[in-house]
Amino acid sequence: MPLILYMRLTSFLCFILVMMLGWMQLYSRAREIFNGTSEIKAEIGHLKSTTAHERIAMALEREQFLEFRQNVATLMPDVLKSKGLGEEGYPYRSLASSISRSEAELVRQTIAKTLFERAKDNFRQEKFPKAIHGFHQIIDHFGFTPYVADSYFLLAESHFKQNELEACTGVIQEMVELFPHHELTGFALVRLGRIYQVQNRNEEAIEIFKTVMRSFPQRDVAAQAKASLKGIDL
């Protein structure tokens, strides 16, 4: 008797459990349908697959472009030999510079040199705002060319000439961090010493001049620092 009762109770509990599960399933499905979740899920799935297809298409197009570029690059040496000279050859040289990395680097060097010469001319003609703009362009966009240290130095000088002492000091500080052993950094530090001198910070100026004499083996730099130090003593 108790066994039958137990069996019935178990069956009843199982039935209740299954009913509950069924209801929960039904509820969750109904919820998805009526509040639009299923539609959003479907849309997300569709968007994901579209993005994946677009990504593949893009990779293939990039590959085709790369192939085209390499094919052109294989033809360029012969074309440059026959048609790449003089003014008429400029389009071919320009094309070669865009497909070959080393050529592109040469073009970048030339651009940097032109910019530097222009900025230096402006500096000589005392057009300091224009010169500052030019030197900034070289520092920001052509950081790996040999004109950077010179640009920093002339930038500091331009600021000094415009009596922008704080900006000048900032540039010199950057020079000390980036090119600690460069001759121009030594000259820039001498300039910094003179700025301190103008600002009646003689002790700091002396310290700067002594540091320059100690740290820069270049004769010109040391001579300038020594002369400036004597000026303070007088």
Binding site: Q70, A73, T74, M76, P77, S100, R101, S102, E103
Partner: peptide
């Protein structure tokens, strides 16, 4: 690698 100035990869 990429094609160099001599026209060869």
């Amino acid at each position: 690698g990429e094609v160099a100035e001599n026209g060869q990869a």
